[in-house]
Design a binder for these strands. Structure first.
Length: 325
DNA sequence: AAACAAGGCAACCGCGGGAGG
DNA sequence: CCCTCCCGCGGTTGCCTTGTT
């Protein structure tokens, strides 16, 4: 038996809302509240689906909404919480993950958070070499899988992985990193000779570097990660964290920080406080280098001091705006 | 200056859960 | 217990803006 539509689609307007429609909806809700969305458009004199009205209200018209850019702190919270509730099916969370995350960010809607995650944060994490789904470094993900396979299968895995990541990696290595290098080059300007194309020598070199070279480097990194895995407690970490009472509280531990404790390759850093704050643990501390403390703003440092001891993703319940699960 | 590409955001769609008859 | 309806969620699409060539 098919589900009946929430409204008759022929008679409803769709697309962008006009200021008049916004006014009608806002004033109606101000007077009558938001009970029964199906009746609201009729009573408010709107040719809209009730669902559309609800979305417009919750995502745009609500007076408590905060517009504007996400702050670093908000982004930090999103990433933290996403590492915990990201795989909501695993923990059988009663509420959706986006709404749960949004509940911790006053003035932000789940749609806001979801859009921000999809358009910005995912790329940001990828750019740091971290898988935005599992919050683990790409190299460790591959290494984890590789440890369960026989050597011939590992070779196939590497090839398959390269196929998957090739485009993304090439993009990151040949385009985005150039920005960073440009910045670096600015400090060593006199060392860089101009190429025939008029671009700095290092940029020209990047362009000339063919795909095969890049792939070779990726392969080396992958095999190095797999070798290092043999000497570390990567699986112990993973298993112990999973075997313990799984839900949210413990799951926070097996995110990025626990993986970084394993001695594998750290993600690449842009050097900004945000990216460094996404990573703690012995390896990252070393990789982050001396300037970490120097660069991070003092207030943030104080906040994160507890996290520095390997457990960035531990979220004390009193730190949350709304308690979860 | 124009064309094209990429990014960002608002809105839509379909599905599932829960409440109530 | 079944059915209907409402609500809310995540995924996706489409359009507008901004950046790049």
């Amino acid at each position: 038996m098919g589900r009946i539509p929430c409204c008759e689609k022929d008679n409803v307007k769709r697309g962008q809302w006009t200021p008049e429609e916004d006014n009608k909806l806002s004033s109606y809700i101000a007077q009558h509240g938001t009970r029964n969305w199906r009746l609201i458009p009729k009573n408010a004199g709107l040719q809209r689906c009730g669902k559309s009205c609800r979305l417009r209200w919750t995502n745009y018209l609500r007076p408590d909404l905060m517009r504007g850019k996400f702050t670093d702190a908000e982004e930090h919270t999103i990433v933290k919480l996403h590492s915990v509730v990201g795989n909501s099916t695993l923990f059988l969370l009663p509420a959706g993950r986006w709404s749960l995350i949004a509940a911790q960010l006053p003035g932000r809607t789940d749609n806001d958070v979801k859009n921000h995650w999809n358009t910005k944060l995912k790329k940001k994490l990828s750019g740091m070499g971290i898988d935005p789904v599992t919050h683990k470094p790409f190299s460790h993900l591959m290494a984890e899988i590789a440890t369960t396979l026989a050597p011939p299968q590992v070779a196939h895995l590497a090839e398959a992985a390269l196929g998957c990541f090739k485009d993304e990696m090439l993009h990151l290595l040949t385009k985005k990193r150039i920005d960073f290098q440009l910045h670096q080059a600015g400090n060593n300007h006199h060392h860089n000779q101009q190429s025939s194309a008029g671009m700095p020598a290092f940029v020209a070199a990047k362009h000339e570097e063919n795909d095969e070279d890049t792939i070779e480097k990726i392969k080396m990194g992958l095999s190095r990660a797999m070798q290092e895995t043999g000497n570390t407690n990567i699986n112990n970490n993973w298993e112990s964290n999973n075997n313990d009472q799984l839900p949210a509280s413990s799951s926070a531990h097996f995110g990025i920080s626990s993986m970084f404790q394993c001695g594998g390759e750290p993600p690449s850093f842009d050097g900004d406080a945000w990216s460094q704050s996404m990573c703690t643990g012995s390896t990252c501390t070393a990789a982050g280098g001396e300037n970490r403390r120097g660069r991070m703003d003092e207030e943030k440092l104080d906040e994160d001091d507890d996290d520095d001891d390997n457990v960035l993703w531990d979220l004390p319940s009193d730190e949350l705006m709304n308690p979860m699960v």
